[in-house]
């Protein structure tokens, strides 16, 4: 166990654990010094972080395959949450079933590192198959909406997110510092960190709204402050986990910061359209799983192709 991870990645995981312990202590301290304020939501959120990071790190330590299975499961939860949230047609039950079946097949291509198939399976084959299956059922009312919303969901929750998993199976020799796991950890950590950093900067200094119609709590101060913090951190940790030069690391930091925000507000727009506040209730204190991985739906594919273009 663990020997498949480079020393740096193991240290990075220890670092994540350290951040988690530190944050938990901070929450306790704040709650203790402000006894008349209610911090139960924040405590719930910390608890969910422990569970999420625990499972994520456990899968990483176990084996690369365990991590791929973990990401497949995340995709399953995200697709299920999406399909439970949006209007679907009763006639399409079996089409949705096929969409679910795409998850194990798609992650099989990931596990076997078959890049050519991985990159076209959902955008080409599932894209063509699902409407075909709908046509066989023959319900034309609402066909366009059903077809479009199903494919967007599959692209977002399965195809996009699976790029995190494909980082794991990239050839290790191109990145001696961290191998595939190092890149994946770099991406996931920075994306999640960026969310927290934007939130914190926004809470402290937020004034001017970026996109009030979609997400009234997002401010320029939060966005810029968060992105700069992420950029700085991206440069600082790149030598330990990635093959990036200084400029490349800065580029990665910008991609993760800016597009993390875009992914976030895209899911916000979806929720606003459907009239819900949270995408679900799977993660107490956070909301649903889409609320947690919204940023990754953008950063995962974009970061992946950035790395792939530069180094593989």
């Amino acid at each position: 166990m663990m020997m498949h991870l480079t020393t740096n990645v193991r240290w990075a995981l220890a670092g994540v654990a350290g951040v988690l312990v530190f944050a938990t202590l901070m929450v306790w301290l704040i709650a203790l010094t402000h006894p008349n304020k209610d911090y139960s939501e924040l405590k719930l959120r910390m608890r969910s972080w422990w569970v999420m990071i625990g499972i994520f790190a456990g899968a990483m330590l176990l084996s690369p395959l365990a991590s791929v299975v973990f990401f497949a499961f995340v995709s399953f939860l995200a697709l299920k949450e999406y399909l439970s949230l949006i209007p679907t047609r009763r006639a399409d039950r079996r089409v949705l079933f096929w969409a679910y079946l795409a998850i194990p097949v798609h992650y099989y291509w990931v596990a076997t590192a078959w890049y050519g198939m991985f990159i076209i399976f959902i955008p080409v084959y599932m894209f063509l198959l699902l409407p075909l299956r709908m046509v066989i059922i023959g319900e034309t009312e609402g066909f366009l909406r059903a077809m479009g919303s199903l494919h967007w969901g599959l692209m977002t929750t399965v195809f996009s997110l699976s790029h995190m998993a494909f980082l794991l199976v990239l050839p290790a020799d191109k990145n001696p510092a961290g191998a595939g796991a190092g890149l994946m950890l770099y991406l996931v950590f920075l994306t999640q960190f960026n969310d927290v950093a934007q939130y914190t900067w926004g809470k402290l200094f937020g004034k001017h709204k970026v996109i009030p119609k979609v997400s009234p709590k997002k401010t320029w101060e939060g966005l810029v402050g968060g992105n700069l913090t992420t950029l700085l951190l991206a440069i600082l940790i790149a030598p330990y986990l990635t093959p990036f030069s200084l400029t490349e690391a800065a580029g990665a930091g910008v991609i993760i910061g800016v597009f993390g925000f875009i992914g976030d507000v895209t899911i916000s727009a979806l929720k606003r359209d459907l009239g819900v506040k949270d995408s679900g209730s799977l993660l107490p204190g956070h909301g649903g799983i889409l609320d947690r991985i919204d940023s990754l739906t953008y950063t995962a594919p974009l970061f992946f192709h950035y790395v792939y273009f530069l180094h593989y």
């Binding site: 299920k80 949450e81 399909l83 679907t88 039950r93 079933f97 679910y100 679900g280």
Partner: peptide, 19 residues
């Protein structure tokens, strides 16, 4: 709510939905 979507009367295939 939702279980009737996951497995309605007369259907044999279970389609996952949060309920």
């Amino acid at each position: 709510h939702g279980l009737g979507k996951a497995l309605p009367k007369g259907e044999a295939i279970l389609v996952p939905f949060f309920c």
